[in-house]
Simulated assay, not measured.
Amino acid sequence: MSKRILILTPNPDHPSHHGRWPYVLDAYREALSGIDAEIFDQPWSEPIAEDYDLILPLVAWGYHNAPNSFIGAMTAMGAAERRVFNPPEIVSWNVDKRYLRDLAEAGVRIIPTLFTESVTDEDVARARADFGQKALVLKPAISAGAKNTLIWEGDILPCAAGEGDHEVVEGAITTTTPPIGPAMIQPFMPAIQSEGEWSLLYFVGQLSHAVLKTPKSGDFRSQPDYDAHLRVLTPPPEALALAQSAIDFIGRDRLLYARVDMVRAPDGGFCLMELELIEPDLYLTYHPEASRRFKDAVEAAMMVCGCTSSDHVH
């Protein structure tokens, strides 16, 4: 009897159900086509009524639109002792970008960050004094795909309005109001527009490949959705060391997949932007060996659960 694998997909009741994710799901299905298992998919927002040998949150896009519901779904899977990889407690921890504070406290170099419960003019002034520069990035603590992320160089913040408020700047749609609720303030890193953002992809704790994502002219967003230029390159040694420190914080044997996103700092080193452990695009189609490595990782995950608890993640 063949194994059964379930891939979690977006909530169809939310607009994020549409977009790039079907193509990402197709890439995973193609990569797993040679595996001795049936591949199923269902929205993460729906109860899991059947038994599966492995559940993968790989395409659970939209979790940031209903984070409490998503964490509740992960918690229920953990309580039911379902084999979920990456494990539910790690996935839940990764929902809120304030996980970066945990990494920083453990010695992993992140972009300098001021965490705040609500962005104020005083926070902006403090961040500028701390970071020594005017251009700041304001982003929600829970977000994805650069949603509601703002580059801010003004003095007085506009009043927060609806999510739909935006303007077009050199062809890039950008929000015009600060994020509402818990947020992060960071210095804008110029290298994101000149060199780009590095993404290092790991399967079962081992580096598979690295992708350099350079935004289109006039934009700062490095996602393919915004026409960024992506190419596979050998990561610099400093980038590799940073990624390994982030992976080691969680534990190599506890991660089926991970994407470590980083940007070069003004001193030439690298700073962690994100440790993506929920539904990252693993860029399987960009490297000839990536799909095979991913398939091998999933086969290994079906052999051992790896879903033990850790003191690192709460």
Rank of each mutant, 00 (worst) to 15 (best):
Y63C: 08
S33A: 14
R4S: 15
E170M: 09
V119G: 13
W93F: 12
I90L: 15
Q133D: 10
A104D: 04
Y52Q: 02
P43Q: 09
A239K: 04
F85A: 15
I185P: 00
L100A: 14
D13S: 15
D165W: 14
E89V: 12
L8A: 08
G107H: 06
A210G: 04
A60T: 04
P158A: 11
E122L: 09
E30Q: 15
R252P: 00
G306V: 08
E170L: 11
M262C: 11
V211Y: 03
A31H: 00
A135W: 07
M189S: 09
I39W: 07
F131G: 03
G171R: 03
S16V: 15
A106S: 15
H14P: 02
I48F: 07
I48H: 09
L56S: 00
H64A: 07
H314F: 15
G107N: 12
E167K: 15
D13T: 15
N11Q: 10
P43I: 11
A135V: 08
T175I: 01
L275S: 09
I55R: 00
S208D: 05
E30Y: 13
M77Y: 01
L240N: 03
V263R: 12
A210Y: 02
Q133Y: 02
E279R: 01
C271K: 08
H287G: 06
V304M: 11
P87Y: 10
A243D: 03
C159Q: 12
V263H: 05
L282T: 08
I90W: 05
S194F: 05
G251L: 04
C271P: 00
N11L: 08
R231H: 14
I55M: 02
Q206A: 13
A144Y: 02
P57V: 03
S2A: 12
R231S: 13
C159T: 14
H312F: 10
A301E: 00
Q223M: 09
R231Q: 12
G19Q: 04
A172F: 08
E105L: 09
L58G: 14
E46G: 03
M262F: 00
D123E: 14
N86V: 01
S310T: 13
G205F: 01
V108H: 03
I192V: 12
L8R: 12
R101G: 12
A37F: 03
P57H: 01
P88I: 03
L272T: 05
A290D: 01
